[in-house]
């Protein structure tokens, strides 16, 4: 399977990464090289094989449903590019 330029642009949109025309073209070639490389997986007989969900054989641990952290608003916004009164600032998203 190889990807065309529109697919590259669509995937970039889904990934929220701006791609200009030049970059999209380069990326198309690189993605096709990688997709060509992974093509060999089609040779493998996967009939009746379960997909891996956990590499270590253990039951998923669950923590107790209790509050054990919090009151850290200042810590949470400390690294944000724009903050006001412990809120993240973004451009207007609703008209």
């Amino acid at each position: 399977m190889s990807v065309d330029i529109d697919t590259v642009k669509r995937v970039a949109k889904l990934a929220r990464i701006a791609l200009d025309a030049d970059r999209a073209k380069t990326m198309q070639g690189e993605l096709n090289t990688i997709l060509g490389f992974v093509e060999q997986l089609n040779e493998v007989d996967i009939e009746g094989v379960e997909p891996m969900t956990s590499v270590v054989d253990m039951a998923m641990k669950k923590r107790k449903d209790v509050v054990n952290d919090g009151d850290k608003a200042e810590d949470i916004v400390a690294n944000a590019p724009a903050v006001e009164e412990n809120f993240f600032m973004v451009s207007k998203v609703i008209e």
Partner: peptide, 21 residues
């Protein structure tokens, strides 16, 4: 939005896309 680099765009989606590019 939450940390690191931000490249401001025309709207929020444009900001995401430019920042990540």
């Amino acid at each position: 939005v939450r940390y690191g680099l931000r490249i401001d765009g025309n709207d929020i989606t444009d900001t995401y896309e430019r920042t990540r590019a």
